[in-house]
């Protein structure tokens, strides 16, 4: 009984204390309704805010990309064929004859019994210049790539480098689609595309024929070594076409030096045959690059030199140029 009394007394004490405490505060402690409202408001705010932020981020991305507008002719040179040069159909001599070219490497030999071979090619078009940063950035912008700003910030006239084989092929595929759909595409190019050609990287034969022509020269400009027509043994990449080369085959620039140019040919022993897709499955994943770079000496910028890299390589000395080819 006494205990009961005590408990009641204690309880009264607590109640009194609560009342006094309540008076000590000049604000009302928030009740459940207020609390739940606050909590639900927080949740609702979160939902709206996250939804808004998510949309905003997407908009920002698009706005960043929109800062580099897509150029009308895809940043290609403003000549009648948008920088492409027609290479007539016909045969040319491929590979090296060590008797005429003391700098030839073993992998330039045609076969065990033959030093050089003759290769017949149909007409195709090849870029007068290496693909530039401006052209590549234009492509990245159009495809909403997160790397667009990165390439747009580079010197637009320099050859694009540090891109992998799949990236190069993706650019070629994109340009192919653009040229097919653009009303401004030069008629000759459009007709070639409609006849079954496509924009891609050159294969080894296409590249070598464009570089050395049909008269069997060792260098794009002729038989003698020279540093007058190409960026060889230099300090850095130069804007495409910096070295004018009047004597060069088909008037192409930078087929020797400046940047190595990756091809769509896997590295296999000669004799050269255009590889079928199935045949590629049986060879190592090494892809031929041609022409040497500004870092190379004269022996590596010969028209027949064959370097090779794996398809993921992104190297500041390796770029590419395009062809419109029916092969």
């Amino acid at each position: 009984m006494a205990s009961g009394k005590k408990k009641r007394g204690q309880s009264d004490e607590v109640k009194t204390e609560d009342a006094v405490l309540a008076q000590n505060l000049d604000y009302q402690a928030p009740g459940r309704a207020v609390g739940i409202t606050a909590m639900l408001s927080l949740v609702a705010f979160t939902a709206v805010f996250m939804s808004y932020q998510s949309t905003q981020l997407e908009r920002d991305d698009r706005a960043d990309l929109a800062q580099s507008p897509v150029v009308e002719n895809f940043a290609l040179p403003a000549d009648p064929l948008w920088g492409f040069v027609a290479i007539p159909a016909g045969e040319f001599t491929m590979g090296s004859n060590p008797q005429r070219d003391r700098m030839a490497y073993e992998n330039e030999r045609w076969s065990a019994t033959q030093r050089q071979g003759r290769v017949e090619l149909p007409e195709y078009f090849i870029g007068r210049f290496e693909v530039t940063n401006a052209q590549f950035a234009n492509y990245l912008t159009d495809t909403d790539s997160p790397n667009a700003a990165l390439f747009a910030a580079l010197d637009p006239a320099l050859p694009v480098t540090s891109v992998s084989l799949p990236q190069m092929l993706s650019y070629a595929r994109w340009l192919d689609a653009q040229l097919r759909t653009s009303a401004a595409t030069p008629t000759v190019l459009r007709e070639a595309l409609e006849a079954g050609a496509k924009v891609t990287l050159p294969n080894e034969a296409e590249w070598e024929k464009a570089a050395r022509g049909t008269d069997g020269r060792l260098f794009p400009w002729g038989m003698q070594p020279s540093d007058a027509f190409a960026n060889i043994g230099g300090a850095a990449l130069l804007p495409v076409g910096s070295h004018s080369c009047e004597p060069c085959s088909y008037g192409l620039s930078d087929m020797a030096g400046n940047a190595w140019e990756l091809t769509r040919s896997a590295l296999v022993d000669y004799p050269f045959t255009p590889s079928s897709a199935e045949a590629l499955l049986d060879v190592d994943s090494l892809w031929v690059m041609r022409g040497g770079s500004y870092q190379d000496s004269i022996n590596n910028v010969r028209a027949a030199v064959r370097g090779a890299v794996d398809p993921s390589v992104r190297n500041p000395t390796i770029g590419f140029r395009l062809v419109i080819s029916s092969l």
């Binding site: 799949p166 896997a266 897709a277 590629l280 499955l281 060879v283 190592d284 794996d310 993921s312």
Partner: peptide, 19 residues
Amino acid sequence: YFARACELKFQAGCANLLQ
């Protein structure tokens, strides 16, 4: 996807990119 396979040195991926 083929581009990614090719980057990873899978030769069939590269072949599928070209054809």
